[in-house]
């Protein structure tokens, strides 16, 4: 168990380095304009430009620039936004993180519960119209752009049908911290959760069904039936439990990507001040340090989360535990 663990850690360190280098290169070595101008923002004065050049070492070789940037991002954490009058970027991201985690966490619960239900039912009733309709619903879910779905939901719940009993409880757009008002937090997030979950319900239920159907031909499923177990027990305890291995690894990747900024579009349409919306604001202001910081932190988060998932995998799949 120790060897695969160490190997995984080594891989993680390598990917972390690679990803920081990649993000750095995208932002500062893309052929085109001077990075100084990009950081300083539009119409910056020559003094500011000079200051930026010194601060980031843009007059020195690339590796030095890279080291400077990493130091400012992760060690001194004093990367400042020029567009936003010297606002420190890293604390801003840390303040926004709980919003994103609330949004993605709730959506994840919804999509796990619904996709497992839908996928399992579809697999159990394979070939029937119920199976076909569930899978078609899933496909439609995959095909809807999340930001558009959010807008349409807003139109219905905030405007057109807001005065009916069905949606009169819906609060205005925005976020309520859990610590302040748990019920308000729930009411503010339930619709964004559902909207964010739609696509993933589609993906996961379809993946799960395909997995369960493929498993049905496996020898151990036949053994389970030959033991005299009920079809439900065979499907759930043997089929579903085995499918969970792929399910969890997929989930880990998606969850990490969403927390790391993938929920940006949902945050924007629902006015939730999370990391994604921070990125969006930075985007509209062309606030390069902020964007780079969010991307860098997200990527680091995703890499670390993937490592955690892989370690979780060791516990879920006894075969991986002592393999290799």
């Amino acid at each position: 168990m120790i060897v695969p663990l160490l190997r995984r850690l080594g891989q993680t360190a390598f990917v972390l380095f690679g990803i920081s280098a990649l993000v750095f290169l995208v932002f500062f070595a893309t052929p085109g304009a001077d990075p100084t101008a990009r950081i300083a923002g539009r119409n910056a004065s020559p003094q500011t430009m000079e200051k930026v050049r010194k601060e980031y070492g843009f007059d020195r070789p690339l590796p030095v620039q890279y080291a400077t940037m990493m130091k400012k991002l992760f060690i001194t954490q004093d990367l400042a936004s020029y567009v936003d009058r010297g606002e420190l970027v890293v604390p801003e991201i840390i303040r926004a993180a709980p919003v994103t985690v609330s949004l993605v966490g709730g959506a994840a619960l919804i999509w796990i519960a619904l996709s497992i239900t839908m996928g399992t039912i579809a697999a159990a009733l394979k070939g029937t119209w119920i199976d076909r309709s569930l899978m078609m619903i899933g496909l439609v879910g995959i095909s809807i752009p999340v930001f558009w779905l959010g807008q349409v939901t807003n139109l219905i719940t905030q405007s057109r049908y807001h005065d009916t009993w069905l949606f009169s409880w819906v609060p205005g757009l925005g976020y309520v911290p859990l610590t302040e008002n748990p019920w308000g937090w729930f009411k503010a997030l339930i619709i964004p959760w559902a909207v964010l979950a739609v696509m993933f319900i589609g993906i996961y239920s379809r993946v799960l069904r395909a997995d369960l159907v493929a498993l049905a031909g496996e020898d151990f499923m036949r053994t389970a039936r030959a033991k005299g177990l009920s079809p439900t027990r065979v499907l759930l305890r043997h089929g579903l439990r085995t499918s969970m291995i792929t399910f969890v690894s997929l989930f880990g990747l998606d969850f990490a990507q969403l927390v790391g900024g993938g929920a940006l579009l949902t945050e924007v349409v629902f006015g939730l001040p999370g990391v994604g919306r921070l990125t969006y604001q930075a985007l509209t202001n062309l606030d390069l340090p902020l964007i780079m910081a969010t991307v860098m932190y997200s990527a680091v988060f995703v890499v670390l989360a993937n490592a955690v998932v892989d370690i979780l995998y060791l516990f879920l799949d006894p075969r991986v535990r002592d393999a290799r």
Binding site: D219, R222, T223, A224, T242, I245
Partner: peptide, 13 residues
């Protein structure tokens, strides 16, 4: 019933 391939006849998890 017992099956040919004991390798795959048990649920791995």
């Amino acid at each position: 019933m017992i099956f040919q391939d004991p390798m795959t006849a048990f649920t791995p998890v």
